[in-house]
Design a protein around this nucleic acid. Structure first.
Lengths: 147, 147
DNA sequence: GTAATTGCAAATCATTTGCTTCGTA
DNA sequence: TACGAAGCAAATGATTTGCAATTAC
């Protein structure tokens, strides 16, 4: 069994534990999120080959909402018309660079310097269950070239 | 002249430099952004006393777009239905904590540890004009209490 | 005076909801 | 079989756009 398949079945287990039923639409969403390293937009989910035509958008939105409530995926706030989601794997925090021109998202291979600040923020503000999101924005080499 | 008025007239100067005409709607938007420490949602702009009734939403959206293109304001990606904007004052970088329950946004009083990473990211990825956005999310004390 | 900006109405796009039918547990 | 999930259609909300009237420079 490949690493990916393994993760997928583990994700399905987590859904089961949360009382969700395992349906075709759910498997498709998780499989797609699992196949990408970076965040995925709702739009690209809806347009993806496995989903478009076979699942209703309302179904996808409902599933994403439920997955988020159950802590299996996380919404992340990139500047785009369409919301982005990513698997919420503990200890797998990643940061991104986003091209303000074409919207391209790259995953950064670096140690995140902010993790240790979460406790500090929590202590200073009284907020609970604090996590963070860090994004870099700029113009990607392709777009810069095109100018 | 107060600090705030001073900043406002400076903002209007920047707009003039960018070739924008100084209209009532523009002044209202900048004045409101200037009066807040944290980010402002489009919704709250539209609902604000000075604007609602006297300016058309389309006008506000168009101005915000133009202000962003001209680098006078920045869009920031908090998780909410409505987009957030903030004045783009150089050297005035701020980070935030957002309550996932009520949406309350607090400005953090701390030195941001990420600024120095921007150059590194730029070097590693080839992206240009890199800046960053850092947000913390959690449950604010009020909401935690309400549970 | 003239080109940019506004207001209004209509169009678009993302997301949500109601309700009936379907399929997993 | 029963209850959660899916599909479909209609509602909502945010944002965009076309165009004629207005206004800053």
């Amino acid at each position: 069994m490949s690493k990916r398949e393994d993760t997928l079945s583990h994700l399905l287990d987590r859904c089961r534990e949360e009382g969700m039923r395992i349906t075709a639409a759910l498997e498709k969403i998780l499989s797609l999120l699992n196949s990408k390293e970076g965040p995925v937009t709702v739009k690209s989910l809806l347009k993806s080959k496995n989903i478009e035509g076979s699942c209703d958008p309302a179904t996808i939105y409902r599933l994403l909402q439920k997955l988020e409530e159950n802590g299996i995926i996380r919404k992340i706030g990139l500047h785009d018309r369409s919301t982005h989601f990513i698997l919420n794997e503990s200890g797998q925090h990643r940061d991104y660079v986003v091209c303000l021109d074409c919207g391209d998202v790259e995953v950064l291979e670096m140690t995140c310097p902010v993790e240790e600040l979460e406790n500090k923020v929590s202590k200073n503000t009284g907020f609970q269950d604090v996590y963070h999101e860090l994004q870099f924005y700029g113009i990607c080499p392709e777009c810069a070239k095109g100018k």
